[in-house]
């Protein structure tokens, strides 16, 4: 039996900037440490990934998020992209939430590999460690 690559399933549900940042940071570092990372962006977490909201920096945040923005450190999009560039990170938008919002993949910032349903995501993340934010 071939050895399975350790895999991380990261489910982003919240639109809180801190949760997006923490989740993307964990995913990015995990991918650079040899893990295969699949990210499922669903429910309110999709909103900050929408081009309009992202371009206007229309985010929901608390005290730490305020400093993240003030100090202009690289945001969740950059963390995910670095993970993609130097490791294996796949990012998927939730088909249900995208349909409800009438958003298409092109409406979102350019980190999404695809828009998929839960069944497909579960199929990809069999036996993975799961983190939900």
């Amino acid at each position: 039996m071939s050895e399975q690559i350790p895999s991380l399933a990261l489910i982003l549900m919240s639109e809180d900037l801190e949760k997006l940042h923490a989740g993307s940071l964990v995913g990015s570092v995990a991918s650079m440490s040899g893990m295969k990372v699949n990210v499922f962006v669903t429910m309110n977490a999709l909103a900050p990934f929408h081009k309009k909201n992202f371009d206007e920096a229309d985010f929901k945040y608390g005290v730490v998020g305020k400093e993240i923005l003030a100090k202009k450190i690289p945001l969740f999009d950059h963390l995910l992209q670095e993970g993609k560039d130097f490791g294996e990170v796949n990012v998927y938008g939730c088909a249900l939430a995208m349909d409800l919002m009438e958003w298409k993949k092109e409406d979102m910032i350019d980190v999404f590999d695809d828009v998929i349903g839960v069944t497909a995501f579960l199929g990809m993340t069999n036996n993975a460690q799961v983190i939900t934010m």
Partner: peptide, 16 residues
């Protein structure tokens, strides 16, 4: 001058 995980990312790029 960079915050976590900036330094690690720099090293990962350098090693790769």
């Amino acid at each position: 001058g960079t915050y976590c995980p900036g330094p690690l990312m720099e090293l990962v790029k350098g090693i790769k």
